[in-house]
C-alpha cells in the first residue's frame, strides 16, 4: 500500500535515514522499533509527506506520495502524532469529527462514525466532555478515534501511521488501543506503528523493522527480529528471549 525505496533523508547536514526500504501491506501491522535518534519519527514524517525526500521514493498505492492531491490523500492516509498541541475547548466529538473533514459523507453519517470511532478507541464515555478537561491518556485516545474516523470504515486501501500511540496510556489502555489498531488492520488497512515497548510490539505487530542509525538493522517476522543479538547490537541491552506461556510470541526480559 505504502512503500519506500532507497529512502534517504538528512536534517541539518546529518544523514538521518540512509537508503531505507519499507513496505506497509494491507491487513498488516508493521512495528517500527529502535533507540532514540534511530530515525523512527523521521521515517514517519517522510511516509506522510511531511518531510522532503532527498533520495529514493515514497509511493502510496503505486503513485508517488507527493502527486496525491491533499483531500484525496487524506481520505486514504491518516497520521496520529505523538502528542497534540490543541489548546482550545472543543468538545470530544468535535475533535473526532475533524477526522471527517476530508469527506463529504453528510452530518448524520459523520456523527454515526464519530460514535463508532470513539467506541473503537474505548473513549465513548468521553462523549460530550470538553477536550481540555481530559487527561493526557484520554486525549491520546480521542486523537486515535479521530484518525480512525478519518479512515472509517477502514478496509483495503487505507493507511494508518501511529507515532507511539501508547506513550501516555495506562497498562490496560495500552492493550485496548493496540488491539483496536490490530482489529483495524485485520479489516484490511495497512498500519505502521512506532513503539518502544518490545513486548507490546511482539504481541500486536505482524512484522517488525528494527531501525539503527537510519538503516534497517533487522526486519521481518516478529520471531526473526526480536532475538538476542539484534537487540544487543541496536539497543546495547542484554535480554532474555522467552516464550509467552499462553500466546507463544516472544517475551523480552532484560537481564
Amino acid at each position: 500500500m505504502l512503500r519506500t525505496e532507497g529512502l534517504s533523508v538528512s536534517r541539518g547536514g546529518q544523514s538521518v535515514l540512509d537508503g531505507l526500504d519499507v513496505e506497509l501491506r494491507a491487513g498488516e501491522v508493521l512495528g517500527v522499533l529502535g533507540p532514540n535518534g534511530a530515525g523512527k519519527s523521521t521515517l514517519l514524517a517522510a511516509l506522510c509527506g511531511e518531510l522532503a525526500v532527498e533520495a529514493g521514493r515514497v509511493e502510496l498505492a503505486g503513485r508517488p506520495l507527493a502527486d496525491w492531491p491533499g483531500p484525496e490523500r487524506a481520505r486514504r492516509l491518516a497520521v496520529l502524532p505523538q502528542s497534540s498541541s490543541l489548546s482550545f475547548a472543543f468538545r470530544v466529538e468535535d475533535v473526532v469529527g475533524m477526522g471527517r473533514l476530508p469527506h463529504a459523507s453528510g452530518r448524520r453519517r459523520d456523527e454515526e462514525i464519530v460514535g463508532l470511532a470513539l467506541e473503537a478507541a474505548d473513549a465513548a464515555y468521553l462523549h460530550g466532555r470538553s477536550y481540555l478537561a481530559l487527561s493526557g491518556g484520554e486525549r491520546q485516545r480521542v486523537h486515535l478515534a479521530r484518525v480512525l474516523a478519518q479512515l472509517w470504515p477502514g478496509g483495503e486501501g487505507r493507511v494508518l501511521l501511529l507515532d507511539e500511540p501508547t506513550s501516555m496510556l495506562d497498562p490496560l489502555h495500552q492493550h485496548t488501543t493496540l488491539q483496536a489498531v490490530s482489529d483495524f488492520a485485520t479489516q484490511g488497512a495497512a498500519v505502521l506503528v512506532i513503539l518502544h515497548d518490545l513486548n507490546l510490539a511482539a504481541r500486536y505487530c505482524d512484522r517488525l523493522v528494527l531501525l539503527h542509525e537510519g538503516r534497517a538493522h533487522a526486519s521481518g517476522a516478529v520471531d526473526e527480529v526480536l532475538r538476542v543479538e539484534p537487540l544487543r547490537a541496536v539497543f546495547g541491552l542484554d535480554v532474555l528471549v522467552q516464550r509467552h506461556p499462553e500466546r507463544g510470541h516472544p517475551l523480552i526480559v532484560a537481564r
Binding site: E50, R73, L77, V79, S85, V95, M98, L101, P102, Q150
Partner: peptide, 20 residues
C-alpha cells in the same frame, strides 16, 4: 472556517486532513 478549525489541531494535523 473548517480549515481554521483543523489548524487549531496543529499545522501537520491540518495538512494530514488534506488542507493546503
Amino acid at each position: 472556517a473548517t480549515a481554521l478549525n483543523a489548524l487549531l489541531l496543529g499545522e501537520s494535523e491540518a495538512r494530514h486532513l488534506g488542507f493546503d
